[in-house]
Design a protein around this nucleic acid. Structure first.
Length: 492
RNA sequence: GCGGGCGUAGCUCAGUGGUAGAGCGUCACGUUGCCAACGUGAAUGUCGUGAGUUCAAAUCUCAUCGCCCGCUCCA
């Protein structure tokens, strides 16, 4: 029986054990921002490590990258974010529901099923004047809207300390564009040949209209993204490949199969550049227990690289327009764009083309939350409730705790030596205080897979007790073999 | 942003105008020899924040911040 874990229980555990705290708590908190505590940072780092190992290090066809968060403003013009991450929203005066203006439908055309693109704010502002015939999707009242309000989904900041000539910059709303901007660099310096991918983990920022559910949707968040470049025509094959590879990654790290599934995007839900998109979703315990996105895997086609080729050719216009993005249009695409600066030359086939891109884009924070929720378990042990986080060893913040059974007879000294030896190889924790049973249970709640206990017998035959978290079973292992035994068990 | 609920110790919560509380947890000492044992002792509070009403506010009023649920929104 899968226990239904409420989000509140997870939040409470996170606080109690030092996984996650509200940001700026001593000042009353800052909405939608969270800090990772001592155990939380280990967990999150382990999630990132596991992703990096699986996507970069274990593969011969992917290389890593770490781009700056601030990038040239033209990046966002070319990518479309500068225009499309600004929405106009109108509020129904009748029911106070806010709706994106471009999602509003005419009274007489309720079946307007054309996919609604985001519209550049200026254009939309002009068009949006007449809402008198628009229908509120919530209460059905016609034409009772406030003036459209612009929502900027990108964080703005200033670059340059001198206020007068500082430049407005945007914090990146996704890490992907830094990869596209470095496609040429990597190609020229790394001896990669298509098909290959570039991976990156890092912070992104989005002014979401609403945040949600603990660390699930926050305005500052960490992404792990891969842009996998392939020859057009092979994109479907690679899409399927990554779809499977990414799904399996969650399962291998212990997510229960029944809590994970794919959701294929409908064609009217796809971003305009995407040929296909599928989400990996986890059954989170928010409210009624909704499936929520952990990761999106999209076929972005050759859209981004082509857009940046246009962007590169628009640079002078940007200078001429006083470095203002809103006043300029990207120049039209060159006719021979497929031979442009971001094209790829295939030596075997002797042809140039703009590669297609398959993008698995995972949210690290929400993955960490999913691993937490999924690992959380309460079980009855001798009439007591045992709280245990059944983390996969690779994700466990602490791999092994070392205890002397009691604080005398030389046991602390032996245990300390073992601890000092093992901590060179993986994260360990030493504890000699209080009853050993209590120490075991404390480690259960931190998700530590193994506890190593030095007892009276250790002095006689140099063995220690290895107590396993999930089964609570104990095995005696020679202290000499402890390192190799643990490494095998932990797979490190 | 709207509607509903909530905010008191690290956690869970009691406390409806009159001295700030409990359980669990934490720490110390003793005891104990393998699963939240026991004994003794201890620490820990801007009662979310700010104003107001009152002789007196955790308690009443207003504002504000934050969290949860449901809408809305979510390349």
């Amino acid at each position: 029986m899968a226990k239904i874990t409420k989000l509140d229980e997870i939040v409470s555990l996170c606080k109690r054990r030092g996984f996650i705290f509200q940001s700026s708590e001593i000042y009353g908190g800052l909405a939608s921002c969270y800090d990772y505590g001592p155990l939380g940072v280990e967990l999150k780092n382990n999630v990132k490590k596991a992703w990096w190992k699986s996507v970069v290090q274990m593969r011969d066809d992917v290389v890593g990258l770490d781009c700056s968060i601030l990038m040239h403003p033209m990046i966002w013009k070319a990518s479309g974010h500068a225009d499309k991450f600004a929405d106009l929203i109108a509020e129904c005066k009748k029911c106070n529901t806010r709706t994106r203006v471009d999602h509003l439908k005419e009274k007489d055309a309720p079946q307007a099923d054309e996919h609604t693109e985001h519209i550049a704010i200026d254009e939309a502002a002009a068009k949006a004047q007449d809402l008198s015939n628009k229908l509120c999707p919530n209460c059905g009242v016609v034409g009772q809207f406030t003036e459209p309000m612009p929502f900027k989904l990108m964080f703005e900041t200033q670059m340059g300390a001198n206020v007068d000539d500082s430049m407005t910059m945007h914090l990146r709303p996704e890490t992907a564009q830094g990869i596209f901007a470095n496609f040429r660099n990597v190609l020229d310096t790394t001896r990669v040949t298509i098909p290959f991918g570039i991976a990156q983990i890092g912070k992104s920022f989005r002014n979401e209209v609403t945040t949600k559910a603990f660390i699930f949707r926050t305005r500052e968040f960490e992404q792990a993204e891969l842009e996998f470049f392939c020859e057009p025509g092979t994109d479907e094959k690679w899409f399927d490949h990554w779809k499977q590879a990414r799904f399996d990654w969650y399962l291998e790290l212990g997510i229960k199969k029944e809590n994970l599934h794919f959701r294929v995007h409908d064609s009217d839900e796809l971003a305009h550049y995407a040929k296909g998109c599928v989400d990996v979703e986890y059954k989170f315990p928010f409210g009624s227990g909704d499936w929520q996105e952990l990761e999106g895997i999209a076929n972005r086609t050759d859209y981004d690289l082509r857009q940046h080729q246009r962007g590169m050719r628009t640079l002078n216009k940007w200078y001429e327009n006083d470095r203002e993005l809103t006043n300029i249009e990207l120049v039209d695409e060159a006719e021979d764009y497929h031979k442009g600066p971001l094209s790829y030359f295939d030596v075997e086939d002797k042809k140039r083309y703009i590669p297609y891109v398959i993008e698995p884009s995972a949210g690290i924070d929400r993955s960490a939350l999913a691993f937490l929720v999924d690992a959380y378990d309460e079980e009855e042990v001798r009439g007591d409730t045992r709280n245990v986080l059944r983390f996969h060893p690779a994700l466990a913040p602490v791999k092994a705790a070392v205890f002397p059974l009691v604080k005398k007879d030389g046991m602390p000294e032996i245990a300390t030596n073992i601890y000092n030896d093992l901590k060179k190889y993986f994260n360990c924790f030493y504890d000699q205080k209080g009853a050993v049973g209590r120490r075991y249970r404390r480690q259960d709640e931190a998700g530590t897979p193994f506890c190593l206990t030095v007892d009276g017998q250790t002095k006689e035959d140099n063995t220690v007790t290895v107590r396993e978290r999930d089964s609570m079973e104990q095995t005696r292992i020679s202290a000499d073999q402890l390192l190799s035994y643990m490494r095998e068990k932990l797979d490190i």
